[in-house]
Design a protein around this nucleic acid. Structure first.
Lengths: 184, 184
DNA sequence: TAAAAGTTTCAGAAATTATTGAAAGTTAAG
DNA sequence: CTTAACTTTCAATAATTTCTGAAACTTTTA
């Protein structure tokens, strides 16, 4: 399968960015190619188009499945597995956020919780524990908020995002109306 | 300088998480240690406490400065450079977000913009360009929103985050009041 | 301006991570 | 049950990233 220059440069870009996005080059390229392809692709398609060994494709697909980013498709009368993005762009982005949160924040939150529990052994440790508590609270606030945002419908979320910092005005507006309403 | 077990385990954890957070082990450990230390630390302190070569500390500090996460402090009558976190936890988290956005999203946005401009060469490319446009719009919405949030004061932002998905109710409330107010 | 105290650089070594390819495993059809 | 078509695993190797340490550089003090 031959790619047009534009598609190829996108796919290669995904490969280069792969490690910044939390996976590796192969995984990035495969995801990029699947996103660009209208038809689902087989492991052999991926391997040949991207010049990647068959084994590497298999491991990459496994990893992408653990991120819930690709799904398997079977064509009638064909024993091959075909792969396609597991949902629309919006859903995929959501999954990446969620998965990264799990990998980047959750382990730290656990460690911090455990560290904060017991009494400081000395003044130095008291300072450190204060800082840990600060970091913990910030991470937790962000985690909780992120999961609430993810539970919102895409429409609501889009509205909120387009509103941007204008949301402040709405919050102020609410306060004003409530205050004048109950005479306080 | 000897660390208590609790502080040491936090610092080592930062090292292990370093690469997931966008830097490397050394950088993670150094940032962790600086966060836990009430006093600013010199390059030699860092090198000895963490068993890291002097040269590596120098490179790590340079990198942390490019992220705007540490600042240099000079003590009167002492020629050494001392290092400390550049601001409170909140500011540091902000900088990490911003820096990562720059590294993880901006290059992709540029590529996508460039790819979308010109006419598709064929049907296959037309599909690909549609997808690229979709990805571009999502990334841009997120980028704009994130930078607006970052420009809000920490207090407003905390209020907003604590409100969580409850923000939807406030938005609905606004709509209701406005509608009933002008008779529509 | 010379020496001392400190910092930075960078080529090579070490450690880590990704990739290949051959062998083993699985599944479906005949 | 056997074969053919396909997938997965994993030890060996390749590629990449990180780290060291010695040399070069800078700044301050005397």
């Amino acid at each position: 399968m031959l790619l047009t220059p534009k598609i190829e440069s996108f796919v290669m870009h995904c490969g280069e960015m792969g490690s910044r996005w939390g996976f590796n080059r192969t995984i990035g390229q495969i995801m990029g190619l699947l996103l660009m392809s209208e038809q689902p692709l087989s492991a052999v398609d991926l391997s040949e188009t991207l010049n990647i060994s068959r084994g590497n494709v298999s491991m990459a697909i496994k990893e992408l499945q653990s991120w819930r980013l690709v799904s398997v498709i079977h064509k009638p009368g064909d024993r091959k597995d075909y792969y396609a993005p597991a949902g629309d762009i919006w859903e995929l982005a959501n999954r990446v956020f969620e998965e990264r949160r799990k990998r980047e924040m959750d382990p730290t939150l656990s460690l911090l919780r455990a560290s904060i529990i017991d009494e400081p052994a000395n003044a130095e440790e008291a300072y450190a524990q204060d800082k840990m508590a600060e970091i913990h609270d910030l991470l937790e606030t962000i985690t909780v908020w992120a999961s609430e945002l993810q539970s919102m419908s895409p429409e609501k979320l889009t509205t909120l995002m387009k509103l941007g910092s204008g949301v402040v005005k709405v919050l102020d507006f609410k306060d004003k109306v409530l205050k004048s309403g109950n005479g306080k």
